[in-house]
Protein backbone atom coordinates (compact mmCIF):
# COMPACT_ATOMS: atom_id res chain seq x y z
CA UNK A 1 0.00 0.00 0.00
CA UNK A 2 2.77 2.39 0.85
CA UNK A 3 4.07 2.64 -2.69
CA UNK A 4 0.64 3.60 -3.89
CA UNK A 5 -0.07 6.43 -1.49
CA UNK A 6 2.72 8.90 -0.99
CA UNK A 7 3.18 11.53 1.62
CA UNK A 8 2.21 14.36 -0.70
CA UNK A 9 -1.02 12.55 -1.52
CA UNK A 10 -2.01 12.55 2.12
CA UNK A 11 -1.26 16.25 2.33
CA UNK A 12 -3.57 16.86 -0.60
CA UNK A 13 -6.27 14.65 0.87
CA UNK A 14 -6.19 16.41 4.19
CA UNK A 15 -6.11 19.77 2.44
CA UNK A 16 -9.23 19.03 0.45
CA UNK A 17 -11.02 17.62 3.49
CA UNK A 18 -10.19 20.73 5.48
CA UNK A 19 -11.36 22.98 2.63
CA UNK A 20 -14.59 21.06 2.40
CA UNK A 21 -15.07 21.34 6.16
CA UNK A 22 -14.47 25.08 6.07
CA UNK A 23 -17.00 25.53 3.30
CA UNK A 24 -19.49 23.57 5.37
CA UNK A 25 -19.38 26.08 8.21
CA UNK A 26 -21.78 28.70 6.80
CA UNK A 27 -24.24 25.87 6.21
CA UNK A 28 -24.16 24.90 9.84
CA UNK A 29 -25.00 28.42 10.86
CA UNK A 30 -27.79 28.97 8.41
CA UNK A 31 -31.18 28.54 9.91
CA UNK A 32 -34.27 27.45 8.09
CA UNK A 33 -34.92 29.93 5.35
CA UNK A 34 -38.40 31.45 4.95
CA UNK A 35 -38.63 32.47 1.32
CA UNK A 36 -38.05 30.04 -1.54
CA UNK A 37 -37.76 31.04 -5.17
CA UNK A 38 -38.34 28.93 -8.25
CA UNK A 39 -36.36 30.07 -11.25
CA UNK A 40 -36.67 29.25 -14.92
CA UNK A 41 -33.90 30.43 -17.24
CA UNK A 42 -32.53 32.57 -14.47
CA UNK A 43 -35.76 34.50 -13.92
CA UNK A 44 -37.76 34.16 -10.74
CA UNK A 45 -41.14 32.75 -11.64
CA UNK A 46 -42.51 31.88 -8.21
CA UNK A 47 -41.79 33.21 -4.82
CA UNK A 48 -43.07 31.13 -1.93
CA UNK A 49 -43.20 31.91 1.73
CA UNK A 50 -42.48 28.49 3.16
CA UNK A 51 -43.66 29.49 6.60
CA UNK A 52 -47.15 30.19 5.40
CA UNK A 53 -47.56 26.85 3.66
CA UNK A 54 -50.12 24.69 5.43
CA UNK A 55 -50.91 21.94 3.00
CA UNK A 56 -48.26 20.36 0.82
CA UNK A 57 -48.78 21.03 -2.87
CA UNK A 58 -46.94 20.57 -6.12
CA UNK A 59 -45.78 22.90 -8.87
CA UNK A 60 -45.21 21.69 -12.40
CA UNK A 61 -42.48 23.49 -14.25
CA UNK A 62 -40.83 22.46 -17.50
CA UNK A 63 -41.21 18.76 -17.05
CA UNK A 64 -40.31 18.67 -13.39
CA UNK A 65 -42.63 18.41 -10.44
CA UNK A 66 -41.69 20.42 -7.37
CA UNK A 67 -43.11 19.54 -3.98
CA UNK A 68 -43.79 22.35 -1.52
CA UNK A 69 -44.29 21.48 2.12
CA UNK A 70 -44.37 23.55 5.27
CA UNK A 71 -40.80 24.80 5.55
CA UNK A 72 -39.45 22.59 2.76
CA UNK A 73 -39.26 22.50 -1.00
CA UNK A 74 -37.69 20.11 -3.47
CA UNK A 75 -37.90 18.32 -6.80
CA UNK A 76 -40.21 15.34 -6.66
CA UNK A 77 -40.01 13.98 -10.18
CA UNK A 78 -38.52 15.06 -13.44
CA UNK A 79 -38.47 13.93 -17.02
CA UNK A 80 -34.92 15.10 -17.64
CA UNK A 81 -32.38 12.44 -18.65
CA UNK A 82 -30.27 13.00 -15.54
CA UNK A 83 -32.87 12.78 -12.85
CA UNK A 84 -30.24 14.37 -10.63
CA UNK A 85 -32.48 17.17 -9.49
CA UNK A 86 -34.63 14.74 -7.55
CA UNK A 87 -31.63 13.41 -5.68
CA UNK A 88 -31.13 16.80 -4.04
CA UNK A 89 -34.01 15.91 -1.79
CA UNK A 90 -36.03 18.44 0.15
CA UNK A 91 -34.34 21.75 0.88
CA UNK A 92 -34.97 23.70 4.03
CA UNK A 93 -31.81 25.60 4.89
CA UNK A 94 -31.28 29.22 3.93
CA UNK A 95 -28.92 29.35 0.96
CA UNK A 96 -29.70 25.82 -0.19
CA UNK A 97 -30.42 25.22 -3.85
CA UNK A 98 -31.32 22.44 -6.26
CA UNK A 99 -31.38 22.57 -10.03
CA UNK A 100 -32.61 20.62 -13.00
CA UNK A 101 -29.87 21.63 -15.40
CA UNK A 102 -31.29 20.22 -18.65
CA UNK A 103 -34.59 22.00 -18.07
CA UNK A 104 -32.80 25.10 -16.83
CA UNK A 105 -34.92 25.35 -13.70
CA UNK A 106 -33.77 25.90 -10.18
CA UNK A 107 -35.07 26.13 -6.65
CA UNK A 108 -33.32 28.20 -4.04
CA UNK A 109 -33.98 29.30 -0.52
CA UNK A 110 -33.09 32.90 0.12
CA UNK A 111 -30.60 33.71 2.81
CA UNK A 112 -32.03 35.61 5.76
CA UNK A 113 -30.45 38.99 5.13
CA UNK A 114 -32.13 39.31 1.76
CA UNK A 115 -35.54 39.82 3.33
CA UNK A 116 -37.20 43.11 3.90
CA UNK A 117 -34.73 45.93 3.76
CA UNK A 118 -37.03 48.66 2.56
CA UNK A 119 -39.31 49.43 -0.34
CA UNK A 120 -37.91 50.17 -3.78
CA UNK A 121 -39.71 53.50 -3.80
CA UNK A 122 -42.16 55.63 -1.84
CA UNK A 123 -45.06 57.38 -3.50
CA UNK A 124 -46.42 60.60 -1.98
Amino acid sequence: MKEYVKRGDLVILIGVLVLSGLLYVPLLFSRGGTVAEVLSDGEVVERIDLDSVNEPYTIKIRGSVILVEPGKIGYLESDCPNGECVRFGMLSRAGAAAACVPNRTMIRILSANREKDGPDAVTY
Binding site: E43, V44, R47, D120, A121
Partner: peptide
Protein backbone atom coordinates in the same frame (compact mmCIF):
# COMPACT_ATOMS: atom_id res chain seq x y z
CA UNK B 1 -43.38 60.92 -5.46
CA UNK B 2 -44.42 59.74 -8.91
CA UNK B 3 -42.76 56.43 -9.56
CA UNK B 4 -41.66 54.57 -12.67
CA UNK B 5 -41.03 50.83 -12.32
CA UNK B 6 -39.19 49.31 -15.26
CA UNK B 7 -37.92 45.86 -16.10
CA UNK B 8 -36.57 43.62 -13.40
CA UNK B 9 -34.22 43.87 -10.46
CA UNK B 10 -31.77 41.05 -9.79
CA UNK B 11 -33.80 38.61 -11.82
CA UNK B 12 -37.14 39.38 -10.21
CA UNK B 13 -39.87 41.43 -11.85
CA UNK B 14 -41.48 42.41 -8.56
CA UNK B 15 -40.91 45.81 -6.98
CA UNK B 16 -42.21 47.19 -3.70
CA UNK B 17 -43.65 50.68 -3.49
CA UNK B 18 -44.64 52.10 -0.15
CA UNK B 19 -47.53 54.57 0.09
Amino acid sequence: GSILLYGSKNGSRDFTVAV
